[in-house]
Amino acid sequence: MNEQVISLIVEGVLQTLEMTVISIVLSYLLGLPYGILLKVTGKQEILENRPVHTGLAFIANVTRSIPFLILLVFLIPFTRLVVGTSIGTTASIVPLTVGAIPIVARMVEQSLNEIPDGMIEAAKSMGASPWQIIIHFLLPEAAPSLLSGAAINAATVLGYSAMAGCIGGGGLGAIALNYGYYRYQTDVLVTTIVILILIVQILQESGIWVAKKIRHA
């Protein structure tokens, strides 16, 4: 590989990390409360509301069922409306965030479902309000599981970001496609794959390590 390609790969790594980090942050800002609502509005939960729970669950299930590449194309008009373009790193953040929100919500719901019902009943018996139960009991108890889930979600978004290269999204996916595939530069393709694997491993192991530290704190 020449210096120009190496420079492109470095730039691609930075773009990929930018897309992944911003998308994960945004998806958790929206997906965390979404997941909490899925939990607390469920049957026999502290804010049981069947219509709300059914509607939220339906939206999450439908969105998760759409292959991400199709979602990328489907959201092009919305992406243009939000950021003014459908090409580039910034534009890719929009579909990445939209695609990650229902995944985050379901994983948050699953983490909260792992909490023993006895803890919630004990909180109720002490006179805690639903908001206090969420803030002081559910979220702290589920923190290790939530962090482990965040690491898995980050790896998922990273994989999605590579697909964004198919429609001019930038990052390592675009480099692998434009140089590794279209120009038959196998060394570039292999390098991008190795880098993506390394980033995924670092994200997952870091998340698991932090989760263990919190669990044993």
Rank of each mutant, 00 (worst) to 15 (best):
N2K: 09
E3F: 15
E3Y: 14
Q4T: 15
V5P: 07
V5T: 08
S7E: 03
L8W: 14
L8N: 02
I9A: 04
V10P: 13
V13D: 03
L14C: 13
L14N: 14
M19Y: 03
T20Q: 11
I24M: 09
L26D: 13
S27Q: 05
Y28V: 07
L30G: 10
G31R: 06
L37K: 12
L38N: 11
Q44H: 15
I46A: 01
E48G: 12
H53W: 13
F58R: 10
F58P: 01
P67Q: 00
I70C: 10
F74K: 13
L81K: 12
V82A: 10
V83P: 08
G84V: 02
T89D: 00
T90S: 13
A91Y: 03
I93H: 09
V94E: 02
T97Q: 02
V98M: 02
G99N: 11
A100T: 10
A105M: 04
R106N: 01
M107P: 04
G118Y: 04
M119G: 13
M119E: 13
M119D: 14
I120C: 01
A123H: 08
K124Q: 14
G127L: 09
S129H: 10
I133C: 00
I134Q: 11
H136G: 10
A142F: 03
L147N: 01
S148H: 13
G149P: 03
G149T: 05
G149V: 08
A150M: 01
V157F: 04
S161E: 00
M163F: 06
A164L: 14
G168E: 07
G169A: 03
G170R: 07
G170H: 10
L172Q: 07
A174T: 15
N178I: 15
Y179E: 04
G180N: 00
Y181K: 11
R183M: 12
D187G: 12
L196W: 04
I197D: 07
V200K: 00
E205F: 15
I208Q: 13
V210Q: 10
K212T: 11
K212S: 07
K213P: 10
I214P: 12
